[in-house]
Design a protein around this nucleic acid. Structure first.
Lengths: 154, 154
DNA sequence: GGATATTGGTTGCTTTTGTAACTAACAACC
DNA sequence: GGTTGTTAGTTACAAAAGCAACCAATATCC
């Protein structure tokens, strides 16, 4: 922000980041919503299972930084629609091991391919160096000390 | 993303942007929530009135890129708590001209000062050049063609 | 000037999220 | 081996967002 300009929302990072996040999320969101009836959390859970193999709900919470109630609901929804399978662990019967069904795998493959394509079009207007700068800064901002939110915000 | 790496969510801009947006929003959100009991939309509406003077609801929608139902509710909430005043326009009785009360002005002043301070601490870790790059890219991403969302998404 | 369309804004209903309390299984301690 | 504390995950309830229908004032068209 320039020194004597009045403060504009476009100078305020939380606002700018939100606007950019919303604008860029829309295109892809439409895709998984229209084609698989998924919500964002469901897509993320599916993604983690596809990318990292079978996981427990808690493992997804940690990896994906999503609160357990959101994961719980996303898992229930994905299970109901046969995208994933739940298997009680014999070592600890509180935990369920979650893994994708064939249908889930297929959805994952398609969605990841789509996500990659979409990502490329998003980044295409910028130089490789700009892209690196962007990624580096965003990662740092994302990992910021989260105030007094212990753990992950719901 | 490097050529042969499997696709990770950290490479996916919508995800990264959302994470950064959420992380950076938290700190400030706690402030206006704790001190003024405001929601994000309310803070944004207040901001626009403080920054640009009296406006109609539609003007706020346009400037702030917020859907009219959200603005309508935010205005009602801010009015109920005497942060703003509503005055029917004689030129077009459908429209109300909204302006901050003294209390609203005071809140605006405090919140803007706070926002500026907060913003500075967020950006402090990065060089001026990085900050410029970031702002430039975010603005461009935020103004992206919004798919088939005509107007502003609710 | 009366029918029709448009615009500004609100309201009702549904879906999604936030928050807290809760259950069940396991762990630790005595 | 029973009490106490944790942990995994679910559920119930409240707050908020999304969406569509709606009302009232104005503009348009004949």
């Amino acid at each position: 922000m320039t020194q004597n300009d009045p403060f504009a929302l476009a100078d305020f990072m939380p606002y700018l980041l939100n606007q950019a996040a919303e604008a860029t999320s829309l295109g892809f969101q439409k895709y998984y919503k229209a084609n698989y009836g998924m919500l964002r959390t469901e897509w993320r859970v599916l993604f983690h299972l596809g990318r990292y193999g079978a996981l427990t709900a808690t493992a997804i919470c940690t990896k994906a930084q999503i609160h357990k109630t959101k994961v719980s609901r996303a898992v229930a929804a994905l299970e109901a629609r046969r995208f994933l399978l739940r298997e009680e662990m014999q070592s600890d019967r509180r935990q369920d091991l979650l893994s994708l069904t064939r249908k889930g795998q297929a959805a994952f493959n398609d969605l990841v391919a789509q996500a990659q394509r979409y990502n490329e079009t998003l980044l295409a207007p910028f130089t490789a160096q700009d892209q690196d700068t962007l990624r580096r800064i965003l990662l740092k901002l994302a990992q910021m000390e989260q105030g007094d939110a212990r753990g992950i915000a719901p």
